[in-house]
Computed example of a mutant assay.
Amino acid sequence: MPASELQGLSAVVTGGSRGLGLLLARELGRAGCDVTIAARDGKELAAAAGLLAASHGVQVRTLVCDVRDRDAVHELMAQTAARAGGVDVVLANAGVIQVGPVGDGAVGVGEFRNAMETMFFGALHTSLEALPYLRRSPAGGRLALTGSIGGLMAVPHLLPYSCAKSAIGSLAEGLREEMAHRGVSVTAVHPGLMRTGSHLQAMFTGDTGREYAWFASLAGLPVLSMNAERAAARIVGAVERRRPRLVLTPAARLAARAHGVAPVLVTRANSVLARLLPAVDGTAPGGVPVRGADVTMPGSAARSRLVGLCSRLNERAADRFNQRPA
């Protein structure tokens, strides 16, 4: 195998303590990068570093950083550059998932603000603080921003997520256009459903049990969702090759193309889907968010077993990718 162009470069992954971020750090480490992972939770970071070293033989450094705080991101880049002699590769991956219907007190302004602060402004802070270092990189800096198929087309009951990811997509495209002549490549990454175990960390509102049931089931189905390890390898490969855009999973590519060709038709189809999703009927606790790992499944034992069967692969991924809450 030829040596990776990333060999010996200094890399930073935000949201690197679990799920996709953890796997991106693993792939960068395997490519020979000096990797720093950042996240809000110091205990999660320590667990992630231990998992990467024990299971994959990848050594990473960790720094606690809340990407919503630009000063904290400034320190992340400055400390990494001081230790590693620069910053060459940055993957802005920090994110949150909120699942529930808009209105009736289920999903409100707070959820939209949290999504924008964490994902869009987190990506913006990371980009702005990284760019001075990336422009000075002898190898030519590489920046990747994690969007989503949910940012290319709105997804019912995931509107805060879709809005933030849509803004990230625009940011990535605009930065690529403006940074091309400065020697910095920017890759917009738009994954579809991936089996990362994120259903346990997502926040559910409205009829939390039924919201969890559909989300966990779809996120774990092999036909609709993608193996997260394969996804991470493809993302790092795209960053290495300086691709402008990567849309992952056949279903996501098909959806993105359909929306581009016939947006009205796709929007009408999603309206039908929205009517099939759980509604707030006054018996659910409205706007009280519940983490997926803490959701109580309603209904029959057979229904619970069905959800468990559909999400089995995702449950396994949660154990492997540091998603299981302590």
Rank of each mutant, 00 (worst) to 15 (best):
G174W: 06
G174P: 14
L175C: 12
R176M: 14
E177A: 15
H181R: 14
G183M: 03
G183R: 08
V184N: 01
V184K: 00
T187E: 11
V189H: 02
H190S: 14
H190T: 05
P191K: 01
M194Q: 03
R195P: 08
T196A: 11
G197R: 01
G197E: 09
H199I: 02
L200C: 13
Q201W: 03
F204K: 04
T205Q: 14
T208V: 13
T208M: 09
G209S: 11
Y212C: 05
L218T: 14
A219I: 08
A219N: 15
A219T: 08
G220Q: 00
P222V: 03
V223N: 00
M226C: 04
A228K: 06
A231P: 13
A232H: 05
A233K: 07
I235P: 09
V236F: 01
E240G: 11
R242M: 09
R243M: 04
R243H: 03
L246A: 02
P250A: 13
A251K: 09
A252W: 00
L254D: 00
A255T: 00
R257L: 15
H259M: 15
G260R: 06
A262M: 15
A262H: 13
P263E: 08
V266A: 15
T267K: 10
A269Q: 12
A274E: 09
L277W: 05
L277P: 03
P278R: 08
V280P: 02
T283Y: 00
A284G: 01
A284S: 10
P285F: 10
P285A: 09
P285M: 01
G286T: 09
V288E: 15
V290R: 07
A293H: 14
A293D: 10
A293Y: 11
M297S: 13
S300T: 13
S300A: 06
S300Q: 11
A302N: 02
R303H: 09
R305Q: 14
R305T: 14
V307R: 15
L309M: 13
S311R: 01
L313R: 04
N314G: 02
E315Y: 08
E315Q: 04
A317T: 05
A318G: 07
